[in-house]
Amino acid sequence: MSTLFFIFIGALLVNNFVLVRFLGICPFLGVSRQLETAVGMGMAVTFVMTLSGIVTWVLQHYVLSPFGLAFLQTLLFILVIASLVQFVELFLRKMVPVLYRALGIFLPLITTNCAILGLALLVAQREYDLIQTVIFAVGAGLGFTLALVIMAGIREEMQFAPIPESLQGAGIALITAGLISIAFSGFAGLVPM
C-alpha cells in the first residue's frame, strides 16, 4: 500500500513530469496563459494518460513481451496513443463542445505530447503491475495539471508586469518555470529512493 502511495507522490511532486522530468513542455508553455484552459488541458492529458497507460501495459505484457517483439515498442505505442487521442477528440466534440473549442489546436497535439508516450515507456522500463501503472498515470497527470495551473496563475498576473521586450513570451515563461522548478526540488526528500 505504501509503495503505491510513494509512486503517486513521486509522480505528482518529487519527479513532477513537467518540472523535473521535462515531459510535456510544449503544452506547458503553449496552453498556460489562462487558468481555465490550463485546467481543461490538464484533465484531458490526465484522462488520455491513464487510458493509454492501461492499454500500453496490456500490449506490453500480452503481445510485445511474450512474442519477443520489444523492438516494435515505440512504433506500436505511438500508434495506440494517436488513435486514443482521436477518440478523446471525437468524444469531447460531441459531449463537451465548450471545452473542445477552448482547447482548439492543442487536442491533436496531445499525440505529440511526450508526457503520454514517456509514461508508457517508463512503465514498461520499471515493470510496474497494472494497479501501479494506473496510480502512476493518475499521479503524473495530476502533477502535469498542477504545474500547468501554477504556471497559468502566475502568467495571468504577469500580463501587467513590466518585462524586458526580448524576454516577453517564451523567455520569461521559461525563467518562471525554472523558479517553480526550484520550489519543487524542495519535495526531493519526500519519498525514499
Binding site: 518540472l19 521586450e165 523567455g171 525563467i175
Partner: peptide
C-alpha cells in the same frame, strides 16, 4: 539540475530575440 535548464534556456531565447 532541472531548474538550470529552464533558466538558461529562458535567457538564451531572450538573447536571440
Amino acid at each position: 539540475l532541472p531548474p538550470g535548464a529552464f533558466i538558461s534556456l529562458g535567457f538564451v531565447v531572450g538573447a536571440v530575440n
